[in-house]
């Protein structure tokens, strides 16, 4: 006898083993659902912090939303800050010959890193929003 989900029963004795497997699967599904619920809750909390509160709470909400892309965002932010600092150094340095070229290259780097940061932020916001929205639908 062949059942769905790759379970196979050759005789009546095999039913007990299949029952065990099915129970294990049920447990796994339950824990997955709990984790999903946890994720949804955290997204909802983060979005609420971002939209309704101010100051530190908003920053913490932002951190929670962009949690998945944090390493990328850190690299982009660091690039942006370094570019801006170097632009200042170039403007103030009297020794630099091609000041305009250096400033424009560093400026383009800063603009690119800012653009990427904004795209990543928007993307994380969309993901969080989608998770929260799905939960609303489920309810």
């Amino acid at each position: 006898m062949r059942l769905k989900h790759g379970l196979m029963v050759t005789d009546a004795e095999g039913l007990a083993a299949v029952a065990e497997q099915l129970l294990g699967l049920l447990d796994k599904l339950k824990s997955g659902a709990a984790r999903t619920q946890q994720l949804v809750d955290s997204s909802r909390r983060a979005l609420t912090k971002l939209t309704e509160r101010g100051g530190k709470e908003r920053l913490s909400g932002l951190q929670e939303i962009t949690g998945i892309f944090r390493p990328l965002l850190l690299v982009l932010s660091a690039t942006f800050i370094v570019s801006v600092v170097l632009i200042g150094v170039c403007i103030l340095s009297p020794m630099l010959k091609e000041k305009q070229l250096a400033v424009s290259v560093l400026g383009s780097m800063a603009a690119l890193s800012l653009m990427c940061s904004m795209i990543v932020f928007t993307k994380s916001l969309n993901v969080a929003r989608e998770l929260a929205h799905n939960d609303d639908d489920d309810e």
Binding site: L47, L50, T51, M115, F121
Partner: peptide, 25 residues
Amino acid sequence: MIDLKKLDAIQKIAQRVALLSLVVF
């Protein structure tokens, strides 16, 4: 309860900043 209008506004701002950065770049 999430304030969706505010969320939209934040998203729009982020998108505009990204667009402006692209133009500057």
